[in-house]
């Protein structure tokens, strides 16, 4: 048990709108980046214990099932009916409310986006891969995670992954992360970096950046950042 009884009460209250099943798949790889894997499993069990609609399955991050989702190595959490909303690493500290928010969003089946941001996100017709690097102690990071996850909910062309930079330090090094939140937008077909920035920006600005990223993909040369 990782949640105290008091926390469980709080989680139960926050998850009251969850009245139908939401299934979480947890891909773990015991040989790699697994310092919090057991904590993640306990967390999922604790959440399930306060709301039986939140169900989970633990899978091998190197299995065929993982490959179906394009996963190579864990830990990765995703929502079975919205597999484009993901957490690489533990959704703890300040990210925990963002994780609960995702569960509620999926159960309710609707997302509350800023109207201008919603219009911009609807214009994205090609796949984009968004990595949001965070640390659990960063108070501002959930804002970026929530925005990206809401965008992914609204438009399944967007794959949005929170990346906990300590567990995924190899990925954090690859993308030169030394301040969070750091957002990296990739072309999922080539793996090329299209755009990156630091900081939690308002939803509408975030949506603009994603449109910029698409322009970069098409060779426009207006250099941003």
């Amino acid at each position: 048990m990782v949640l105290s009884d008091k926390d469980k009460e709080g989680v139960k209250k926050l998850l009251e709108p969850v009245q139908r099943d939401v299934k979480i798949l947890f891909f773990r790889d015991d040989s790699s980046r697994c310092q919090y894997c057991d904590v993640i499993e306990e967390l999922l069990e604790d959440i399930h214990s306060v709301n039986e609609h939140v169900i989970y399955e633990v899978l091998d991050a190197n299995s065929d099932k993982a490959k179906e989702y394009g996963i190579e190595g864990g830990p990765v959490l995703l929502f079975e009916e919205r597999p484009n909303i993901r957490y690489r690493g533990i959704p703890s500290g300040h990210e925990f409310p963002a994780f609960l928010d995702d569960i509620v969003t999926i159960a309710k089946g609707s997302v509350d986006l800023n109207a201008n941001a919603a219009k911009k996100i609807a214009r994205i017709q090609e796949p984009l891969h968004v990595l949001i690097f965070v640390t659990p102690t960063c108070p501002y990071c959930p804002l970026a995670v929530r925005a990206a996850h809401h965008f992914a909910y609204a438009n399944d062309k967007i794959l949005a992954e929170m990346v906990e930079a300590i567990e995924w330090s190899d990925l954090a090094d690859q993308y030169r992360v030394s301040a969070v939140p750091k957002i990296v937008v990739l072309d999922p077909e080539t793996g090329n970096e299209l755009l990156e920035w630091e900081g939690a920006v308002p939803e509408e600005v975030f949506a603009d950046y994603l449109l910029h990223a698409l322009e970069h993909k098409h060779g426009a040369h207006d250099h941003h950042h």
Binding site: D7, L14, Y36, I90, S92, G93, L143, R146
Partner: peptide, 15 residues
């Protein structure tokens, strides 16, 4: 302070 083993219920940015 939030750590990997603490789970905030209140977020300063998600209301």
């Amino acid at each position: 302070m939030p750590s990997p083993f603490s789970f905030s219920l209140e977020s300063p940015v998600l209301s």
